[in-house]
Write a protein that binds this DNA or RNA. Structure first.
Lengths: 435, 435
DNA sequence: CTGAAAGCGCTTACAG
DNA sequence: CTGAAAGCGCTTACAG
């Protein structure tokens, strides 16, 4: 019978031919060959390895990688070319039609649950489906109907708990609406992000949720807009009013946190971590600034420490302000990671987080609850943002022409131990509502 | 020109017709209509809303949801039926061919980077591609070539940091090989998992990575096997030697951790959390058991506490053993979450984790480094497991017939503060290598 | 209630 | 070096 290889989707049942259900399948194949001779027999099907028993099993076709200068998705990727096999082995709607003695159309209508088909026919067709082990090919149907159930999700880094939760929520919301999500990580690389967009669109996603990488070029979004791809921008407010948006209110979040610390009696409040130019961080610093202004406290630039946020960066950040002549008694931390790292930094300097310095983070990652002391944080509501992003893009898929929507989620202050102790008032000038 | 709606993929450029490039596109459409009259003119294209200017823009087709008794993926899902539009508006390979005055075949060869096409032709075609704003339709190509660049990944819960890291690694490894991943969560529901398998296969994934939900029925895997879908089982050792496997060595991990605690001089070592019947947990308990045996220590069933692991369960678990007449001085915790929760439980009982009880968790989630005290843990190497799972399934996609491979990753003991202090030896019988 | 026919957007062996 | 033709596996308006 000769060597055969299996295709990605085709060829799955071929071994059966050699065993138990040989008769059935091969009889089928022969019948097909008889009926379709003259009508089919396409040239391209014949390959060098076609040794005469054609029509029974798949003729193998080898595709050699051709080193081309132009590749549709703009990037040569390995692994895309493979040995493929004829699909004579794959059970299709035609096989079902033949087996049950009805037309292809009727099978399709049965599959789609049309009420126009008689019960008897439905039963007959369903029996054939079971007997032959048919698998519906939704991508073929999608090609015909110009639909897609895929949503592309581009995030920077799944390992960031904020994005983890966002992703989980998006997956769940998409699933609820009958969509799947293609998950890809841009690694904060605008170039890569651009390629991912192209590639996802080529793969026929129905829509895209993008958390723009820092430094995203306008061109990426211009192209998406030209192509009329339904897009929802998420988390980071890319300045583009042509797309829906779902994200946090960073400004308000920082205001909330700062006001809380002010109410506890703190006046020297630091803002640790994050880099200038990062819109989320800049919005948070702005909210912090505004709250200080409103409380009549002069902004001290020395209390704002910039750093590339990481799982360790907080140590250095807090040590920097600890070295100041008049160190802070409380700190806002760019995110929860920074906050937890700041805790370690404090301990390294014989200070107890929460007691010797009040701390509030941003994000609301679940792990904030597990630190010691437990971390107060402003939850940016990643789950809500994700759910909304999914809903927005799906809604956009369904109605391309509805007005642009921006959904900014209200943050939620989650108070725990790290901000519990009131400021030991050694400066009697201000002391409102200590508790 | 009448009202028009946009499809998922089609219809994107239609607005252009009313504006700037009206001439070009509509001229093209007219030319097409002329050339193809008689040869095309399919009946199904005509809809009730076809008011006479057909051939210029998309005729709208409304599809009514039909409440069917049979649905290919075995489950009625909302949102799958939508208003679709003719794709006269979509730029295809035909448009490029016409615009550049070559055949469809030639365009295709140019797209695929064939060296058989002359430079002049390539340039001409590429110019048309740019001019017309063509987007390659990879799913159409996939249908023709019977290939797919999609891998389905079924995990229980993305919010579990172990699975987060696994997923990130899989996405990265898949990307390296030119694949995308469809991410779905089974929520530990075997029924849902089964539907997800069906649905992903219908969507034409090239392969599947599955972390089997607890209680997965054999049927799910039988069907996958019959369909010859390339599958890699990950993390949880489902007893099925028909599929590749990538997962941790839970037994060895527990042995490692137990030996470490024994070397620190501990004899009363608890195993907290996890439920009997969970293979990972049972393997860990077995490894713990063996290490105790080898050290000549009698196994005390009271030191093994079962519970459904959560972010709080450790509190109750540790309090249970603390109430024992002869409480443990050290504990293995089913996973890092349990361990961190155990820390809280200890503090609630005026005990300091690390000092008053040595703790080692399992998983190696990044947050273990952020706890206080920092958590010793046996890393199960989620990243490695993910990378291997992706490699295995991709390899299987490429060569269906290679032997089954099981890749069990060696765990790695990561010692931190929570297991630092040696046992204050109040029982002088055994005391090996305290440090 | 059912079938014949056309076509979604691609690729490829074959014949010039 | 290039084109004509067939077909991947589906769906649907139309005509019985």
């Amino acid at each position: 019978m000769g060597a055969r290889q299996h295709a990605l989707r085709g060829g799955r049942r071929s071994d059966r031919c050699q065993a138990a259900s040989h008769g059935d399948r091969c009889a089928r194949a022969d019948r097909r060959a008889d009926r379709e001779a003259g009508h089919r027999r396409p040239g391209w099907r014949r390959s060098a390895s076609d040794t005469g028993n054609a029509g029974r099993n798949g003729d193998t076709i080898h595709r050699r990688p051709e080193g081309g200068h132009f590749c549709p998705e703009g990037q040569a990727r390995p692994g895309l070319r493979r040995t493929i096999v004829r699909s004579e082995n794959r059970v299709t709607i035609n096989d079902i039609a033949r087996h049950s003695g009805v037309s292809r159309s009727t099978v399709s209508l049965v599959l789609r649950g049309s009420s126009r088909i008689s019960k008897a026919t439905v039963d007959k067709v369903k029996a054939s489906i079971d007997a032959l082990g048919y698998t519906y090919n939704r991508s073929a149907a999608n090609l015909r109907t110009q639909t897609s159930q895929a949503i592309g999700l581009i995030i920077n880094d799944l390992m960031n708990p904020f994005f983890t939760e966002l992703t989980a929520a998006i997956e769940e919301a998409a699933d609820r609406e009958g969509f799947f999500v293609y998950l890809v990580q841009s690694n904060e690389d605008p170039e890569r992000q651009n390629k991912l967009c192209t590639s996802l669109v080529e793969h026929g996603v129905a829509g895209l949720i993008i958390c723009p990488a820092t430094g995203s070029p306008r061109e990426t979004f211009d192209r998406l807009h030209t192509q009329r791809v339904p897009v929802c921008i998420a988390v980071r407010p890319f300045p583009d009013d042509r797309f829906d948006f779902s994200g946090p209110d960073n400004f308000r979040a920082a205001e909330l946190a700062t006001n809380e610390l002010l109410e506890l009696g703190h006046e020297r409040i630091a803002f640790l971590g994050g880099e200038r130019g990062n819109p989320s961080r800049d919005d948070r610093v702005a909210g912090y600034f505004k709250a200080l202004q409103q409380a009549g406290i002069t902004f001290d630039p020395e209390l704002v420490v910039e750093s590339r946020p990481s799982r360790q960066s907080g140590v250095a950040d807090v040590e920097k302000v600890l070295g100041l002549p008049n160190p802070p008694t409380a700190a806002l931390c760019y995110n929860d990671f920074v906050a937890i790292s700041v805790m370690h930094g404090l301990r390294r300097n014989e200070m107890e987080p929460g007691r010797d310095m009040a701390l509030i983070g941003f994000d609301g990652m679940p792990e904030a609850e597990m630190s010691h002391p437990t971390l107060s944080t402003v939850s940016l509501r990643p789950r809500l943002i994700g759910t909304e992003a999914a809903n927005l893009v799906i809604d956009r898929i369904k109605s391309a022409d509805r007005p642009i929507l921006r959904r900014v989620q209200s943050p939620e202050l989650v108070l725990r131990e790290s901000s519990e102790a009131p400021r030991q008032s050694n400066s009697p000038t201000r002391n409102r509502n200590p508790r």
